[in-house]
């Protein structure tokens, strides 16, 4: 396609160049339809199904399903497990990011890989490792039994599995952000006489607060929604060790579809709130969350 700018009218060349670096109207429309169709089929429809099935027999049935004492205890347990696991990983994430982003030391890349490790392990295996560690036939099993310490089929096991699965979330969010921000702010504070903790609380923390919130948000969504790992260590004791996702499974397998989808709808609502907050953070504080998250 030869562009003869000398003879063409002034508007024509830009039109030609534009045509050469963008697709035809037809191609554009087709691609948009394919993409939107895919999103509708695989994302929008499943989400809509959850709410439609939950309200299939009306809001009264939905409310009754949620008032069931076993469902209520599942909601409570999910909140307890998340309330313990998320702060633990928050502290870990900040410590890991401080060490990795603010210092240069040998083996840093390897340490980062190890922190990411739980992401590449199947959730079922994440639960299995704790069964092998604390189960009745393990080295620790008889000791725990003798002292009446219950880890599996109880809250500690659920917390351990959840912490394992959500291990990298906060650290992964903070490391690139803190690396980007460098150390000059902290150095300035220290040279002005601030102590280490003062520097952290008054300089670093305000710099990373939105990125931290972002990481906690994702960590919490996974902690409340985790299924595979928790399923292995829970023992499925009704009304005692069932979290919300496990309660969904039990109700579903009993063909109690309205109740199963009612609990699922609460979890889906949580997912939607997470998405809205996440998008809001990306739009409003794009400079203060990790570069990889800015769209």
């Amino acid at each position: 396609m030869a562009l003869d700018t000398s003879t063409a009218p002034s508007a024509a060349p830009s039109k030609l160049v534009k045509a050469a670096t963008s697709e035809t109207r037809f191609a554009r429309r087709t691609l948009i339809i394919v993409a939107l169709g895919f999103v509708a089929l695989f994302l929008v429809l499943p989400l809509a199904t959850v709410f439609i099935e939950a309200f299939r027999k009306g809001p009264a049935e939905f409310a009754t399903a949620l008032r069931d004492p076993e469902t209520f205890s599942a909601i409570r347990l999910t909140l307890i497990v998340a309330a313990i696991s998320v702060p633990l990983n928050l502290v870990f994430g900040v410590a890991a990011a401080w060490a990795i982003a603010k210092f240069e030391f040998k083996g840093k890349a390897f340490l980062t890989t190890l922190i990411d490790l739980p992401f590449s392990v199947s959730p079922v295996i994440s639960g299995l490792v704790f069964v092998l560690l604390f189960g009745g036939h393990s080295a620790l099993g008889p000791f725990l039994q003798k002292h009446g310490i219950q880890i599996l089929f109880a809250v500690p096991g659920l917390v351990l599995a959840t912490v394992f699965v959500t291990f990298p979330f906060v650290a992964r969010e903070l490391i690139p952000l803190m690396q980007e921000q460098g150390t000059s702010d902290e150095e300035a504070a220290l040279s002005l006489g601030a102590t280490g903790w003062q520097t952290f609380w008054h300089v670093t923390l305000p710099n990373i607060k939105w990125g931290l919130l972002y990481g906690v948000l994702l960590c919490n969504a996974r902690a409340m929604g985790e299924f595979g790992a928790v399923s292995v260590v829970s023992g499925h004791i009704r009304g005692q060790t069932n979290t919300m996702p496990l309660q969904v499974e039990i109700l579903y397998n009993e063909y109690n579809f309205v109740a199963a989808f009612a609990v699922a709808a609460v979890l889906a609502l949580l997912a939607l709130v997470t998405l809205v907050l996440k998008t809001a953070l990306e739009l409003r504080y794009s400079d203060e969350i990790a570069a990889s998250r800015r769209h």
């Binding site: 993409a35 999103v39 994302l43 929604g225 299924f227 996702p245 997912a271 997470t274 998405l275 996440k278």
Partner: peptide, 15 residues
């Protein structure tokens, strides 16, 4: 649509 792409990260797998 852009925000929806992350739905599988946020929606519990059992749901």
């Amino acid at each position: 649509i852009d925000a929806m792409v992350d739905l599988p990260f946020a929606l519990p797998t059992a749901v």
